[in-house]
């Protein structure tokens, strides 16, 4: 669970503050919808139309793990974030979970609407919710635990002259896995392909297929490019990355509301017959385009 909420503020306490002609603005936000997906819940609502002379300063989005009696979130929800726009992406963890949401509009005088009628959604289950066979980093929409994070890409060639070679159980993300994986378009990476390897040991080859989860906090906006994935030297697939915001080279936390980062998520099966008893090596070779910025990478078994 990776919700980043401020427990000090609730929709109820926010709307109770003060009394007088500037404390409330009529009505409530309408049209609120919540759609659960992999690692996200997408929230949208209709723009609030304040009375003349007022502007919407921002919307406050509240989340709760439980629905209060009658669907009223006013006494249990916590502030998820503030946004100017009538939509927000809630970035959540790998586990499927039902959450309940409401929205309050705050206008230029500071006055607030009543909370919107609450809605709920269940986020999709990620393979990373399973048992970790090998894992680098936390699936939390942040890349801050990695080496060189959040903005030291200029030191990459010195710190990782032959790419990344990481051994699960011995290596540490802060020292041994670079936050940014350069591509052949990157001058700072020497304009060549770079390979990141994740080594892990298995007592025995698995009977069932496993799965790989690769979460990114960002990528280059117009040249995210592709990577070849291999397991023990055998091809698994080519990943074509979605364009990001070209901000992940400078900042590492996509959970902050207002962050410009554009995360993306990739999950795919790893056939059981690709594994072997003893050492296994999962490799990502960036074959085209510019960089990607890591959130986490792992190999998982269904529990």
């Amino acid at each position: 669970m990776t919700d980043t909420t401020d427990p000090a503020t609730t929709a109820a306490s926010a709307t109770r503050a003060g009394r007088g002609r500037w404390d409330h603005t009529p009505g409530a936000v309408s049209g609120l919808t919540a759609t659960g997906g992999l690692a996200t819940v997408e929230l949208t609502w209709h723009s609030y139309r304040p009375r003349r002379g007022q502007l919407v300063d921002h919307y406050e989005v509240y989340v709760s793990e439980r629905a209060d009696r009658g669907g009223d979130l006013a006494h249990s929800a916590t502030l998820l974030g503030r946004t100017l726009y009538p939509h927000l992406t809630h970035r959540v963890g790998p586990e499927p979970r039902r959450r309940h949401y409401t929205v309050v509009a705050v206008v230029s005088s500071g006055a607030r609407t009543r909370p919107a009628r609450p809605v709920s959604a269940v986020s999709a289950r990620s393979v990373a919710a399973g048992r970790a066979v090998a894992r680098v980093g936390d699936f939390d929409h942040k890349g801050l635990e990695f080496a060189l994070s959040p903005d030291q890409s200029a030191r990459y060639r010195t710190a990782f002259p032959t790419g990344v070679d990481y051994r699960y159980g011995t290596s540490t993300p802060g020292r041994d896995w670079s936050y940014l994986h350069p591509g052949p378009s990157d001058a700072w990476g020497g304009r060549k392909e770079h390979t990141f390897a994740l080594r892990f040991d298995l007592a025995a080859a698995p009977k069932d297929d496993l799965a790989c989860a690769l979460w990114l906090i960002d990528a280059h906006a117009t040249a995210a490019g592709a990577a070849e994935v291999t397991l023990n030297g055998r091809p698994v697939r080519t990943l074509q990355f979605q364009g990001g915001a070209t901000r992940g080279s400078l900042e590492g936390d996509a959970t902050r509301v207002g962050s410009a980062l554009k995360p993306s998520y990739y999950e795919f099966p790893l056939a059981a017959d690709l594994f072997t008893a003893g050492e296994n090596v999962l490799r990502l070779r960036k074959t085209s385009g510019s960089w990607i910025a890591y959130d986490a990478l792992g190999v998982f078994a269904a529990e």
């Binding site: 502007l55 919407v56 300063d57 921002h58 503030r82 946004t83 100017l84 705050v106 230029s108 902050r256 207002g258 962050s259 410009a260």
Partner: peptide
């Protein structure tokens, strides 16, 4: 620390 976005910002 973040880019201005809302009126409050």
């Amino acid at each position: 620390e973040l880019e201005t976005n809302t009126l409050a910002d």
